[in-house]
Design a protein around this nucleic acid. Sequence first.
DNA 1: GCAGTTAGCATAACGGCGTTATGTTAAAAA
DNA 2: TTTTTAACATAACGCCGTTATGCTAACTGC
Lengths: 250, 250
Amino acid sequence: MLCNTVKVSPRRSNPQTRPALVDIAARLLADEGPQALSARRIATEAGSSTMAVYTNFGGMSGLVREMVYEGFARLQDYFSHVSRTADPVADIALLGRAYRHNALTNPHLYAVMFGGASLAGFSLTAEDRQYGRYTLSTVVECATRCITAERFRAGDAELVAHQLWTAIHGLVTLELGEYLIEPFDADRVFEAQLTGLMIGAGDTLEEATRSVASSRRRLKKVVEGVRPDPVDDRPAGDRRRRPRQAAPAG
Amino acid sequence: MLCNTVKVSPRRSNPQTRPALVDIAARLLADEGPQALSARRIATEAGSSTMAVYTNFGGMSGLVREMVYEGFARLQDYFSHVSRTADPVADIALLGRAYRHNALTNPHLYAVMFGGASLAGFSLTAEDRQYGRYTLSTVVECATRCITAERFRAGDAELVAHQLWTAIHGLVTLELGEYLIEPFDADRVFEAQLTGLMIGAGDTLEEATRSVASSRRRLKKVVEGVRPDPVDDRPAGDRRRRPRQAAPAG
DNA sequence: GCAGTTAGCATAACGGCGTTATGTTAAAAA
DNA sequence: TTTTTAACATAACGCCGTTATGCTAACTGC
């Protein structure tokens, strides 16, 4: 074939191949969706054979797993750009907005992260899920501050964080599935959901409304801080990403 | 092959083939998950060739669509067994519980209904989604009663219904994905979510707590009323299901 | 009753998929 | 320098959804 046009092809630990596969997979996923993620196509576009996918990731599952980790890393990026202010409720609302923005910016990636079923029989391991849950710790900490500030009822901060997570995850999922339309579009439901959660957690209607509005204004800053990211414009060098080596067919 | 052991094989409009395919597909989906849904396997287990899938459903997408309709029909079944009482908040909470119970009883079916991405490149049409949204009307009506009874703030009943939907959908999705564990398990988050939603909608903490507890007691009756259903134990006769004919390759 | 039409389905093939067995080769180890 | 090792190419296996073709039984009009 035309696998390597020039036959230099370094045989041991080519440092180009692995990140190239990851970046191409991420681009295919972002541009054409999950069905474009095939070992054959990725390898072809990377100028190598399908075996490269197996030596580097142990198979398609390993590459998909890499995408999932990338997705959580991007989410963590957004969360880390949410600053702590004197209004913890506005902060936690902003975390919710950041979560939604990340999902809408990387819709296919988000679908792979939580789609669970199908996709070449891929399924996450317990460790993968723990890695995803860890992302919640930022929200838990913020919920604790809301309770300390007596904006939320005394009780479980983790419970509040889980409520926020499940609620916004559901909204984003149905939004990406185009189930929310016209007068009851995702934006209206989202703000209502957010406000309702704050009230349900113990905040007053007035305070909640003000904090949610405040978070709306602050979102722009967060989004700008995270860029550039959308599809991975960087040259192809490696960056923050799990070391995680592939099992070499043992 | 052994396609039809006895070679009687009526050639025109065999009334057995179509429901047999649907029932086998439903069973495979329930027993082994989405990856077991293949035209070849379904046809083999039905004793026919893969062409039967195409003449009856126009391809795998058509059969998957049939599964989606079946899923919404089952959900509607649960909703129709939720009776109207003097406590509309308990009623709407019970709708939420019924929604969750249906999803947990038919997890793979629920995944196909809202998994959206992948699964042999299948995707729902706008009409399919409208069919799914229609299921919400039961909840909207109940939310209206909550507002009329002055348990919820005056405002949009559809908005409240969408909040409930997105919140519980998100919880169920993460629950099925095994993201909710141990001390913050799905049951705790669900009840907190439910109570929080009622308070957020305008109900008082005491009333909401009482209504949510009431709905917990009433769930059993609903579940018993819906059976039998889990995997489709019936002989194979047709039943409530969309007429929807397959495009004959025109 | 009969001929022409039609539609359900069997057979077989096509291209694409994930995966694996095997060989080749360049870098690391001795 | 020699041996070992691991990254990758090549080619094949079995699966998938889909399609082209042909057969035949049921409908259609006479």
